[in-house]
Each structure stands twice: as structure tokens, then as C-alpha cells.
Computed example of a mutant assay.
Amino acid sequence: MVNVRGYISSNFTKSFLTIFLPFYLIISLVFFVRISSLTSKIQINFAELLLLYSYSIPEIIFYTIPLSFIAALANVLINLSQGNELIALYALGLKSKKILSSLLLLGLLFSFLLAGISFLAMPLSKQFYKAFKEEKRSEAKLNIVPGELGQKFGNYYMYVKEKTDKTFHDIVIYNRTNKADEQFFSSQRGQINHNENVTSLLLHKGYGYTYTKTKLQQAEYETAEIFDRSQSQGFQFQSIASYWSEGKESREKVMHRILFYIFISLIPFLSVYLVASFTMINPRYQQNRSFLVIFITTLFFYIIASSLEKWGTPLLLILSIMIITILGQWLFKKRVAKYF
């Protein structure tokens, strides 16, 4: 029996990789397009593009594995059936349930893998993704281009004539504190400083002017520092527990997402009996309908998953799992185990 399990597992692994890799590449292209769309808002180089893609890998795997597992399971069983290999195993006295036990174990292992990805890896990768975007957006706000008007540093409008390395030359800054007061600063040079979450502009050798309706004040300075008070405090990372319990979204929405992840994670294990009921066939009397089985099974599972994400409750999740388990075993007993 150990050799039979190894043989079936080996065939499943080959079929799974053959299906998983193309699906993975296709979904990766979708994510690359989504990441590339960020270049209209922030500037990223190729290395940063790959870094953002690496943050998306857990999500890509999570959505690729269930479909790949169903397709690989159907292909393996239908190929073994059409090659009369299952018939030979039946003739040796092996029951269909015994043959299916190795695939049930694989389904259980894949379900544990998906649960780990959805509840551990994906929260971390999404936070890294958001933190990277926040950092880039913050840098974009401070990307001062020489010779352009209308650029802002915090609440200040800023004009720079030249820039060498990280130093600005011939700087003019305008700020309107209220309807009656206006401020101007001019400086020979300056540079942007970063200190933790605080960003400032350090000016050297210049003049400051404050204008009101009644008077004009002038001040000369050797150094002056202007702080950007408009910046956010940066992205705050959360632990896994706090991510699921103290998220910004409503509790109901978080619960629906948890139910969705749980159900999607269970698809490999729940699909074994359903798929086997229509792909463990006698090729002399039954036709190969593996493509139809893959399509209907996948559609069936994702309709339930989408329903749980929108209107689900823990009770509905439990009922869905029980009904699918009972339905799968009943169909398997009626169509396969009754004869083999």
C-alpha cells in the first residue's frame, strides 16, 4: 500500500506543478500590471518593482493553489482511470476509499498550507506593501524639481533655481498663514533633513519677510529650519492578532473576510470526494468529463466563498462544510465505492 500511495502522490505532484506554474505566471502578470499602475503616482525602479511583487506572492499562491489542486486531482484520477491503472488496483483487492486516502492526506496538507498563508503570511505582506507605498508617497511629496513653480514643502510653496547632489541653491519660499499675513523666505542654499518621522528644510544665509496690510518686517538669518507639519506619522505595523482584532474596518467585514479565508483554505480537502466521484470511472462505460468537473466544482466552491464573504456567519460556514462533506461522500459512495 505504501508503494501505491507513493505512485499516486508522485503522479499528483507532476500534474499539480504542470497546472500550478502556468496559473501562477498568469496571475503574476495581473499583479505586475497592478503594481505598474502605481508608477503614475510614485516613482519606483526595477528592484523596487520586484520587491513589491515579492509582497504579493502569498496572495498569488493563496488564489492559485485551490484551482490548481482541483484541476490536478481531476487530471490524475481520470488519467489513472483511462489507463486502466485504477481497474488493476481494484482487481488486486484495493478499495476505492483506500486508494483515495493518500489524496485526502494531500488535500489536508494543502488546506493547512493555505490557512497559514491567509492568516499569517498575507497580513504581514499586505502591511509591508502598504508601508512601502506610504514611504514612496512621502518621498514623492519632497521631490523638489529645480526650475518648477507651484511645488510644495508641507504648507509652504517653494521654488528652487538649482540643485547639486542633495543641496538646493537660490531658494524662495512663500507661506500664507491667514488672510492678512504672508511670509516670504529667500536663501542661498538649503537641504532636506529626515529625523525619524519628522522632515525639515534647513536654510543657510538668507532673509525672511512678513507682510501685513500695515507693515513689512524683515529678518536676516544665518540658518533657519522649516518643519513639514503636514506629514503623516508613518505606517504603523500591527501584530497578527491585532491585525485581525483591531483593524480599521468594521468587525462584521473582518469576520466575513475570515470566513472567506477559512472556506478557501478548506477547498483542497473538501474537493477530494466531489472530484473523485466523477473522475474515478470505468473507461469502457463512462466518458471523460474532467474539464466539466473542474469548471463546475471550482464555480461551486467560489460561489459559496463569495456568499460567505458578503453575508456569511460562522453558522453558515459550518453548515456549508457539513453539507459539502456529506454530499461528496454520498456521491462517492453512489458512483464509485458501490462498484469498486
Rank of each mutant, 00 (worst) to 15 (best):
Q218M: 10
S242M: 14
L114H: 06
L331M: 09
E85G: 08
I324L: 08
L86N: 05
L77S: 13
A140G: 07
W244D: 04
L124K: 05
K166C: 00
E148H: 15
A47R: 07
A72T: 04
Y159C: 05
F227C: 10
I323W: 11
Q286H: 12
K126I: 09
K97D: 12
I117M: 06
Y174C: 00
Q82P: 07
L292E: 05
E135C: 00
K133P: 04
Y285P: 13
S101G: 11
R176W: 03
R229T: 15
Q217E: 11
W244F: 15
L51Y: 06
N3A: 11
F300P: 07
I240K: 02
A47Q: 09
N84M: 12
L29N: 05
K166N: 12
I144R: 00
L103T: 04
L259Y: 07
G206R: 01
I192Q: 01
S125W: 05
L317H: 01
F16L: 02
S9D: 03
T298A: 06
G328Y: 05
G312V: 09
R5D: 12
Y207W: 13
S68K: 01
F12L: 10
V145Y: 01
I240F: 00
I78D: 01
S56R: 13
G83R: 01
F132E: 05
G190N: 03
S96I: 07
R335M: 12
Q286G: 02
L21F: 12
T214P: 08
V336G: 12
L270K: 11
S290Y: 08
T223M: 10
T13H: 14
A224T: 15
S9G: 08
M158D: 09
Y302S: 02
P58E: 04
F168E: 00
A180Y: 11
K253A: 09
S96Q: 02
M322C: 15
I294F: 14
P123W: 01
I267V: 12
T177L: 14
Y302M: 07
Y273E: 11
P146D: 04
F31V: 01
I321R: 10
Y273C: 02
T325V: 13
Y174L: 09
K253E: 06
I26Q: 08
I99N: 14
S186R: 13
I35V: 13
L92N: 12
N3K: 10
R284Q: 15
K310Q: 15
H194W: 03
L67W: 07
L105W: 15
S56E: 13
S101T: 09
K163T: 11
D165G: 07
A180C: 14
L94F: 12
V30G: 06
S250V: 04
L292G: 08
R257Y: 04
G234W: 01
S81Q: 05
K166V: 15
S307G: 04
Y285R: 14
R335K: 13
